[in-house]
């Protein structure tokens, strides 16, 4: 895609900004995170382009969830920088909530608000944060609910839904803010096996639609299907990354080979 502004040198500054915008949404630059003596993230860098789906895998405790939580400053990094749209995210900034608006997040444990109905869960943030008109927000919510096949649940409370249904609602809740990037933190790990598919199909749909996403998962089959780029993290560092086909069929590092092997039975 070409920018309409990129045809003359006079517009070079605008053009540059546009290129940054189109290419890199998120730039994680050398971040580190420690809990006491335990190094969770070790000088880790990762860039995510617009429309790209990055899937992160790795053994448990490798730092992949912490990485997601550092992106929207739920964890405060000790070193390095996370930049969204070329602007560094400052965890102590008063306007941090404005930045978080643009970063959607879906949690392993759904975390719907139990005292609100599904519809209320969905419109809360758009109405209170984006100051969207309630009627409009509800219309949008119903439209998205229909897309994930949960329109009939709009007036139910979260506890009346199955795990898979809750997680689909949680995805819709994140989408309601129309975020620039979606972070998915092991969103199927707490689900019964038969519900995993209904959730992952929604995510695949979003991937096809061109949503920018960072997905942390243990579902390798799903990763293969959804990812534009695979990243393998161990010990708080990126050990290997690449195209899904290469990544799964021709792993270069011993550690990734071992990790992939641990998922097969012979």
């Amino acid at each position: 895609m070409l920018s309409p502004y990129c045809d003359s040198p006079a517009n070079s500054l605008v053009c540059k900004e546009w290129v940054i915008k189109m290419n890199e949404i998120l730039n994680i630059n050398g971040i580190s995170k420690k809990y006491g003596d335990l190094v969770v993230l070790d000088n880790l860098s990762l860039k995510v382009k617009s429309g790209e789906v990055v899937v992160i895998v790795g053994p448990s405790g490798c730092g992949k969830s912490t990485l997601l939580r550092c992106i929207n400053a739920l964890e405060i990094i000790d070193d390095g920088e996370v930049a969204l749209d070329g602007k560094a995210i400052n965890p102590h900034d008063k306007n941090l909530s404005k930045v978080r608006e643009k970063i959607g997040m879906v949690f392993q444990s759904y975390e719907l608000f139990p005292h609100k109905t599904i519809l209320q869960n969905l419109v809360l943030a758009p109405v209170r944060v984006k100051k969207m008109n309630r009627k409009e927000a509800e219309k949008e919510a119903l439209h998205l609910l229909e897309r994930v096949g949960l329109l009939s649940k709009k007036d139910n409370y979260p506890r009346q839904l199955s795990g898979g249904q809750k997680q689909r609602v949680a995805i819709v809740r994140a989408l309601m803010m129309n975020p620039e990037i979606l972070l998915m933190d092991e969103i199927t790990a707490a689900l019964d096996p038969e519900m995993v598919r209904e959730v992952l199909e929604v995510v695949l749909d979003l991937a096809k639609e061109g949503r920018t996403m960072i997905i942390v998962t243990h579902e390798l089959q799903f990763a293969k299907a959804a990812a534009d780029r695979m990243v393998f993290i161990d010990g708080g560092r990126i050990i290997e990354e690449g195209e899904p086909k290469e990544f799964f069929e021709n792993p270069k590092t011993e550690r990734l080979k071992k990790f992939l092997h641990s998922f097969t039975y012979e």
Partner: peptide
């Protein structure tokens, strides 16, 4: 109330006060 309730709300862009 689990800490993740705070987190999921903050992640949606609500302020701590909200």
């Amino acid at each position: 109330i689990s800490p993740a309730q705070y987190e999921s709300s903050l992640a949606l862009g609500l302020t701590y006060h909200q």
